[in-house]
Nucleic acid binder design. Structure first.
Length: 415
RNA sequence: GUGCCUAUAGUUUAGCGGUAAAACGCCGGGUUGUGGUCCCGGUAUCUUGAGUUCAACUCUCAAUAGGCACCCCA
């Protein structure tokens, strides 16, 4: 029987060329986070399945969950998101840790869903969070971090927009309109799709939830108003906008009441970063404040604000705006090729390779005897920066030559 | 879960009812210690199964795989 050499559906192999791209994205992420003083952490690939069932919602914590049973009959899941794991981690150390806690991680996740453009079953995410601060300064920092993560890739002007709103605004509005807590969740779901659904479909859905015409009208005028409402929640957002404007991010940020986000656990500021490219018009990633989750593990709750960009959407953004050319076009490697020009020199060549490596050089060794023409051809195709010529002639003179593949120049080095 | 599209060398694609082309890649040679160019050669049960036909890579149906959109979500 012939086995398929394709990776499982919804997963991807990273050949060296692809690996280079991912490494580039990850290293930019890591650098920017460290610049803000964030510390890196990692949790196990699997967690008890019930953590996700309790928290991640019907799809992500339900049929999209990849689970198996261990020998003790415990049901485990491959993580579909980081938030429950990091919440579990923080709950262990929260009381004794110096606050605020600033953490980030770069990890892979699995969701058993139908793959499509920008969405795979296995994907990687950066997770950034601040735990233990209720100050609006935490919101400002998280948003600034999100902006800097984008800007570090040197995107063109107007290539993306940070859209900000707050769940508090909805809360205030719901209370004013006398919408019950029971209705609130369902109403928020509908509002989340404001731009996708037609006005008719929206009022139909809202009527189904039990809202009166007047209530729907008020909701609609709120959603279409580009001005911040004059409420405590609006004042908080105003403070955030003011701070980001002062820091020079004015051109990238915008108030947008249609940003609601699907997850129920958001209870303060929420935001999404939109790709403005016409081929790729979508939310790249989002996040916000979620203060209530700590209680999941029995303890008290604590303030938290964070976000999580994914590797696939980020790569599409970079590709669309032509920001990966430098990475993909430069195939050169600072590696020397040391061919075996004579079978009799095998041991001497191995010793030379060892010595060069010990001095810090990257050396790729020829495994079988090879003509010098072939060796140069090989180094060329692999994009290696130089070839170390060490044959009978050189051995006799107790020296070797380094040939620079770009310039063709040879340098003699005595052994 | 719903809908649409696609399937030909390693890769990207052409092709016509009469037994397969190109480019690039890879391997070998031209060129036995000096590369990138050039030249020559090699590299395909046309996804699988059934049907229509004298004849199917080409038409029909099914299966399988992949992609895209919805749903959901980052």
């Amino acid at each position: 029987m012939k086995l398929s050499n394709q990776p499982p559906k919804g997963t991807a192999d990273w050949l060296p060329a692809e690996f280079k791209i991912r490494q580039y994205i990850f290293s930019v992420w890591r650098q920017v986070c460290q610049r803000y003083g964030y510390e890196e952490y990692l949790t196990p690939l699997v967690e008890s399945a019930e953590i996700y069932r309790a928290k991640s919602g019907e799809e992500v914590g339900g049929k999209e969950l990849v689970t198996f049973k261990d020998f003790g009959g415990r049901e485990l899941s491959i993580r579909p998101e980081m938030t429950p794991s990091v919440t579990r981690l923080v709950s262990q150390i929260y009381n004794s840790a110096a606050k605020p806690i600033r953490w980030f991680s770069i990890a892979n996740f699995m969701r058993n869903e139908k793959p499509q453009r920008g969405r795979n079953r296995e994907f990687w995410q950066l997770n950034c969070d601040i735990f233990g601060s209720s100050s609006l300064a935490a919101e400002v920092e998280i948003l600034q971090l999100a902006l800097d993560l984008m800007l570090e890739f040197k995107p063109p002007k107007n290539s993306f927009t940070l859209k900000i709103s707050s769940r508090v605004l909805l809360k205030e509005l719901f209370s004013k309109l006398k919408i019950s807590d029971k209705q609130a969740t369902a109403v928020a779901r509908v509002l989340d799709k404001w731009k996708k659904l037609s006005p008719g479909a929206i009022s139909e859905s809202l009527t189904k939830v039990g809202l009166a015409k007047e209530q729907i009208k008020s909701l609609s005028s709120f959603m279409n108003n580009q001005q911040l409402p004059e409420t405590p929640g609006g004042a908080d957002l105003h403070f955030i906008f003011q701070a980001l404007n002062d820091l020079g991010y004015k051109n990238y940020i915008k108030y947008d009441p249609t940003v609601v986000r699907g997850f129920d656990y958001y209870d303060g500021m929420v935001f999404e970063i939109f790709d403005n490219h016409k081929n790729n018009s979508r939310a790249l990633f989002g996040g916000g404040r979620y203060n209530g989750l700590g209680a999941l593990f029995g303890g008290q709750s604590w303030p938290a604000v964070g976000f999580a960009p994914g590797d696939e959407t980020m790569k599409l953004f970079l590709e669309s705006w032509g920001l990966l050319k430098k990475i993909t076009e430069d195939t050169s490697r600072a590696v020397y090729y040391l061919p075996l020009l004579e079978a009799g020199l095998t041991k001497a060549v191995w010793r030379l390779a060892k010595a060069l490596r010990q001095s810090g050089q990257q050396v790729e060794l020829g495994l079988e005897p090879q003509k010098i023409g072939k060796a140069l051809d090989y180094a060329n195709k692999k994009g290696l920066s130089g070839v170390i010529i060490f044959g009978q002639e050189e051995a006799r003179k107790k020296m070797y030559k380094i040939k620079n593949m770009a310039t063709g120049k040879e340098t003699r080095v005595n052994l």
